[in-house]
Design a binder for these strands. Structure first.
Lengths: 108, 108
DNA sequence: GAACACTACTACGCATCGCGCAGTACTGTC
DNA sequence: GACAGTACTGCGCGATGCGTAGTAGTGTTC
């Protein structure tokens, strides 16, 4: 089944989550997300999300010329981004809990 | 925080879930969802979802004239709808589990 | 009895956002 | 030198939740 709709509003959260420890560039973030189980995430979605988060002031960015390919634009999460990550995580947990509640009444 | 994006792709599931036991009409489904914790769900979203599910053959419908207001259009889940409910529930669980995995690495 | 509130549904258009696809560009390999 | 892999950008589409307005019926309150 298609999970693209489920990603809505959550990709921001996922991207912030994979950046919370180490800086990363777009292509790398895509790989981390897929390694984490989001197999179907499109690369354009991730690049778009990174740009959106950057424009929203959640990330800083710096370019590193690579000797083994094109330059890499690294993104680093800042305080605003961390605050947003914490907030979004709580929103997600609360929402997931609510939906699970609705689904579990099925058994009743 | 705004949860409208999180609802994407899940409202179908939630609507099917609240209809799985008893038939319901639009206004009633809205109340059940809100009672279940989806406080911010818009009524137009629910009516739209009901029509979408009906057009997709997941629901049947019958009109009951009410003595205490306008007529009510009841919706009833059918076999196709139940199959979809089961399928979507699994998709949701798998997805939620994946995302929780990504988030929990935060603690590590 | 007129204004108002509640119930119940429909229709229109908007905004968000993930995605597909094309394009650019650099490196390495066969 | 054609091709694959890496890395990023931009364009336009499609799905879907939401706001708002509109229609329509019933009950309440002054």
């Amino acid at each position: 089944m298609d999970t693209s709709q489920l990603l809505k509003g959550v990709l921001d959260l996922a991207v912030l989550a994979v950046l919370r420890k180490d800086d990363g560039y777009g292509y790398d973030v895509v790989r981390r997300l897929r390694a984490g189980g989001l197999n179907d995430v499109g690369d354009a979605s991730v690049y778009g999300t990174l740009r959106r988060l950057y424009n929203a002031g959640m990330l800083t960015s710096y370019v590193v010329p690579s000797e083994e390919g094109p330059h890499r634009k690294y993104y680093s999460i800042n305080e605003t981004g961390r605050a947003r990550l914490a907030e979004s995580r709580e929103t997600w947990r609360s929402f997931a809990s609510t939906l699970n509640g609705l689904l579990e009444e099925v058994a009743a």
